[in-house]
C-alpha cells in the first residue's frame, strides 16, 4: 500500500490502471469540448467535418465565431463585472471577519462562527430564492406604503451580486482566517514597540503577511462568481451573465461556438488555477 510495503506486481498493475482510468474519466469531457470547438460543422458532434477556427474568428455566414458573437461577448463582460464587484465586497468583509474571529473574544462567538459557515451547506438554488423573496418583499412594501420604487431590489444584476456575495464571503473568510492563524503575533507587538499605532501595525505588518491568502481568495472568489449558476439563475433579470446565456443556448441545442467559449473558459480558469497553486506553494 505504501512504497515500503512491497505488493505483488499484479496488485500494482491493477492499481495503476485504475488511476489511469480515473484520470481519463476526469479529462474526457474537457478534451471533447476542446476538440469539437475546431470541428467544421454546425453541431458539436460527429461526424468530424475537418479542422476550422471559424468558431473563434468567423464574422459572417451561418457560423458566427465567439469573438464576433455580440450576445455572448456582452454576457462575458457582464460576468466579469459581476465577478469583480462580488470579489471586492467578499474580500473586504472576509478580512474584517477573519480579524474578528481570530483576534477577539466575545459572547456568542462560536455561535456566530457556525452561522458564518451556514452558507456552505445551503443549496445555491435556495440561497437564490430566499434572497429573491426577501428583496421582493421589501421592494413591494416600499412601493405600496412609501411609493418608492427601488429597481435594484428586483431581479437583476444587483441581486446577482448580493446572492453570490452571500456565500462567497464564507469561503474567502475561511481562506484568510487560515493564514491569519499562522501569523506570529509578536511581529505586530514588535511594530508597536517600534512606535507604530495599532492600526498602522496591522496595515504595515499583518496585511502584507496576509497578501498571498487575499490574492488566493480573490482568485477563488472571482472564478466562483464567474462560474456560478445556481444562485445566479434564480436572481437574473433581463441581462444574462455568461453561465445563464450558455445554459439557455445549451437547452436550445447549440453550435460549436459554445465549445469555443468553453475552451476559452478552460484556458482562463486553468491559468488562474495554476497562478493560485504556485502562489500557495510559495507562501506555504
Amino acid at each position: 500500500m505504501i512504497p515500503s510495503i512491497k505488493q505483488s506486481s499484479r496488485f500494482n498493475a491493477i492499481y495503476q490502471s485504475y488511476l489511469i482510468a480515473f484520470f481519463i474519466f476526469l479529462a474526457a469531457p474537457l478534451i471533447v469540448v476542446a476538440v469539437f470547438s475546431f470541428n467544421d460543422s454546425l453541431f458539436p458532434s460527429f461526424p468530424w467535418q475537418g479542422f476550422t477556427t471559424d468558431w473563434f474568428f468567423s464574422s459572417e455566414g451561418n457560423k458566427i465565431g465567439i469573438f464576433f458573437d455580440s450576445d455572448l461577448l456582452n454576457s462575458i463582460w457582464l460576468s466579469i463585472g459581476i465577478a469583480l464587484v462580488t470579489t471586492l465586497l467578499a474580500i473586504t468583509v472576509a478580512c474584517t471577519n477573519a480579524f474578528l474571529f481570530e483576534r477577539f473574544d466575545f459572547p456568542g462567538k462560536s455561535f456566530l462562527y457556525m452561522l458564518m459557515l451556514l452558507p456552505l451547506v445551503i443549496p445555491g438554488v435556495l440561497l437564490g430564492v430566499s434572497i429573491l423573496v426577501f428583496s421582493s418583499e421589501i421592494a413591494n412594501y416600499l412601493e405600496d406604503y412609501w411609493f418608492i420604487d427601488l429597481e435594484f431590489l428586483r431581479p437583476g444584476l444587483t441581486l446577482v451580486v448580493i446572492g453570490q456575495f452571500a456565500f462567497i464571503t464564507t469561503i474567502c473568510t475561511l481562506i484568510i482566517s487560515a493564514r491569519l492563524k499562522k501569523f506570529d503575533r509578536s511581529l505586530e507587538e514588535a511594530a508597536l514597540n517600534l512606535g507604530a499605532s495599532p492600526l498602522m501595525a496591522v496595515f504595515t505588518v499583518t496585511m502584507p503577511f496576509l497578501k498571498p491568502a487575499i490574492i488566493g481568495a480573490a482568485i477563488v472568489s472571482f472564478l466562483m462568481s464567474f462560474e456560478n449558476f445556481n444562485t445566479t439563475f434564480m436572481l437574473v433579470g433581463s441581462d444574462a451573465p455568461l453561465t445563464v446565456a450558455m445554459f439557455e443556448r445549451l437547452r436550445e441545442g447549440s453550435t460549436p461556438v459554445l465549445n469555443a467559449i468553453s475552451l476559452l473558459l478552460m484556458l482562463g480558469s486553468g491559468v488562474l488555477a495554476i497562478i493560485n497553486m504556485t502562489m500557495q506553494k510559495k507562501s506555504a
Binding site: F23, L26, A27, A28, P29, L30, I31, V32, V33, F36, F43, P44, S45, F46, P47, L223, F226, E227, F229, T243, M246, F247, L250, L258, N259, S262, L265, M266, S269, G270, L272, A273, I274, M277
Partner: peptide, 30 residues
C-alpha cells in the same frame, strides 16, 4: 494538481462535455 484543475472549470462546461460524449450523435455512441 491534475486532479484539481478540471474542477476550476465551470460546471456548465464539464456537463456540456458529458453531453457531447453521451448523446445519440455523441462520441461514445459513434
Amino acid at each position: 494538481a491534475m486532479c484539481l484543475i478540471p474542477f476550476w472549470v465551470s460546471e456548465l462546461v464539464r456537463t456540456f462535455g458529458w453531453m457531447i460524449l453521451l448523446r445519440e450523435s455523441g462520441v461514445i455512441s459513434n
